[in-house]
Simulated assay, not measured.
Amino acid sequence: MSSKYPQARILTKKNDPLHIIKTRKATHQRAVTIAGPMVRYSKLPFRQVCRHYNVDIVYTPMILAREYVRNCHARMADFSSNESDSPLIVQVGVNNVTDLLRFVEMVSPYCDGIGINCGCPIKEQVREGIGSALIYNPELLSSMVSAVKTKYGDKVRLETKIRIHDNWDQTVDLCNQLCDAGVDWITIHGRTRTTRSSEPVNLDAIKFITQKIKSRNVPVIANGDCFDMSDFQKILDYTGADGVMAVRGLLDNPALFGGFKACPWGALELFWHYTMEFGGLPHQLLLHHLHCMLGSMGLEKSLHNELMNIKDTSHLIDWFDYNFVLKRFGEQGFAEATDIPYKSHSKP
């Protein structure tokens, strides 16, 4: 059984995210694939499932630096990893150099890179100068990047995940400042701070910014509206980005980058396996993951309603065993099925 606790690691070509981003086309005949940070949901069990389906780099949920560096309980709750959870980027919400340097010192030995969240639009975070507030404070953001890279150089990979401004030239100026500060790569989410996720991502903006900073030799990752491999290729071809980050699409279908149009049953079995192996997840979080994956599979509506009314994990396991053929790790055919394996009394 693998540990859920992080182990110290050293950057090599195998786990160096910048090397992977720059060489994936040569080694795998495709651009790099990235599972982005999801508040609450990109925990260790889910990250491990994504890695089974051609995801090259995976992010943790955002961790607030001020809480992490001051509170041992936050450190225990917010970050778990193991030797197979690599390459791993830990995303941080931060608004000052001191907290960031302390955070990097504590976390960097146990991951493969740090990502500064400059895209979260949640009002509480923005009021504190965290998340998307940082794209309107380029001097602070650049000073944080510079402080980390000055102290650690290539020993710590540092990324910034930004949103776009209404004026794209303003975003280009920000990216140039980040390049000057030493950022290793930039992820661009093609929406402004106020753009709803229901509105299409602005690929024109990502293309414009990518072309403007191409000469800086800093890779650009495109983020937004990647729900299958046709989206992946469309985004790459249109924007000229060096790779694609998916977030919402992976929540419904963690096998997205494996070429599956909908979540395969095997991914759900893997998710159950890792959830149990690493000590479980809070019931409501577990239930939401299953809700998203089974929704992608087209679970019969009455069963879906039953699922959402289950109040604890032990009953949830019993419900799965009663209605479906849920294979465990080590059983023949584990994690191989595509369609929902209903038992005869549960077939729609």
Results as ranks from 00 to 15, higher is better:
Met1Asp: 07
Ser3Val: 11
Lys4Val: 07
Tyr5Phe: 15
Pro6Gln: 12
Ile10Tyr: 09
Thr12Asp: 03
Lys14Ser: 14
Asn15Gly: 07
Pro17Asn: 06
Pro17Tyr: 01
Leu18Val: 15
Leu18His: 14
His19Asn: 15
His19Tyr: 15
Arg24Leu: 13
Ala26Ile: 07
Gln29Gly: 10
Arg30Ser: 15
Ala31Glu: 15
Thr33Met: 12
Ile34Pro: 10
Ser42His: 10
Arg47Leu: 09
Arg47Met: 09
Val49Ile: 04
Cys50Thr: 12
Cys50Gly: 06
Arg51Ile: 07
Arg51Pro: 03
Arg51Tyr: 11
His52Glu: 15
Tyr53Gln: 01
Tyr59Ala: 04
Tyr59Lys: 05
Ala65Pro: 12
Arg66Tyr: 08
Tyr68Asp: 05
Val69Gln: 01
Cys72His: 11
Arg75Asp: 08
Ser80Trp: 08
Asn82Ser: 13
Val90Glu: 02
Gln91Arg: 09
Gly93Arg: 00
Val97Cys: 10
Ile114Thr: 09
Ile116Arg: 00
Asn117Ser: 09
Lys123Phe: 08
Arg127Glu: 14
Ile130Gln: 10
Ile130Leu: 13
Ile130His: 07
Ile130Val: 13
Ala133Glu: 00
Pro138Gln: 08
Leu141Phe: 05
Leu141Thr: 10
Ser146Ala: 14
Ser146Leu: 08
Lys151His: 07
Tyr152Phe: 13
Asp154Ser: 14
Arg157Val: 09
Leu158Asn: 02
Leu158Val: 07
Glu159His: 11
Thr160Asp: 03
Ile162Trp: 00
His165Ile: 02
Asp169Ser: 11
Leu174Gln: 04
Asn176Lys: 12
Gln177Ile: 05
Gly182Ala: 06
Ile188Met: 00
Gly190Phe: 01
Gly190Trp: 03
Arg191Trp: 05
Ser197Arg: 06
Ser197Thr: 12
Pro200Gly: 13
Ala205Phe: 05
Ala205Pro: 05
Ser215Arg: 09
Pro219Ser: 13
Ile221Gln: 03
Asn223Val: 03
Gln233Lys: 14
Gln233Thr: 09
Asp237Val: 06
Asp237Thr: 10
Val247Arg: 09
Val247Trp: 01
Leu250Thr: 09
Pro254Tyr: 02
Ala255Ile: 02
Gly259Ser: 04
Lys261Asn: 07
Lys261Met: 14
Ala262Asp: 01
Pro264Gly: 01
Glu269Arg: 00
Phe271His: 14
His273Trp: 12
Tyr274Met: 06
Thr275Gln: 03
Phe278Val: 07
Gly279Asp: 01
Gly280Glu: 08
Leu281Trp: 04
Pro282Cys: 03
Leu285Thr: 13
His289Arg: 09
His291Glu: 13
Met293His: 13
Met293Ala: 11
Leu294Ile: 07
Gly295Asp: 06
Gly295Pro: 11
Met297Ile: 08
Met297Gln: 14
Gly298Lys: 10
Leu299Tyr: 00
Leu299Gln: 07
Glu300Ser: 14
Asn305Phe: 13
Leu307His: 15
Leu307Thr: 15
Lys311Asp: 13
Thr313Gln: 14
Ser314Arg: 14
Ser314Phe: 10
His315Lys: 14
Leu316Ala: 08
Ile317Met: 15
Trp319Ser: 10
Tyr322Pro: 02
Leu326Glu: 00
Leu326Ser: 09
Arg328Asp: 13
Gly330Ala: 12
Gly330Ile: 04
Gly330Glu: 00
Gln332Glu: 15
Ala337Glu: 12
Thr338Ala: 06
Asp339Val: 04
Pro341Tyr: 02
Tyr342Pro: 06
Ser344Gln: 08
Pro348Val: 02
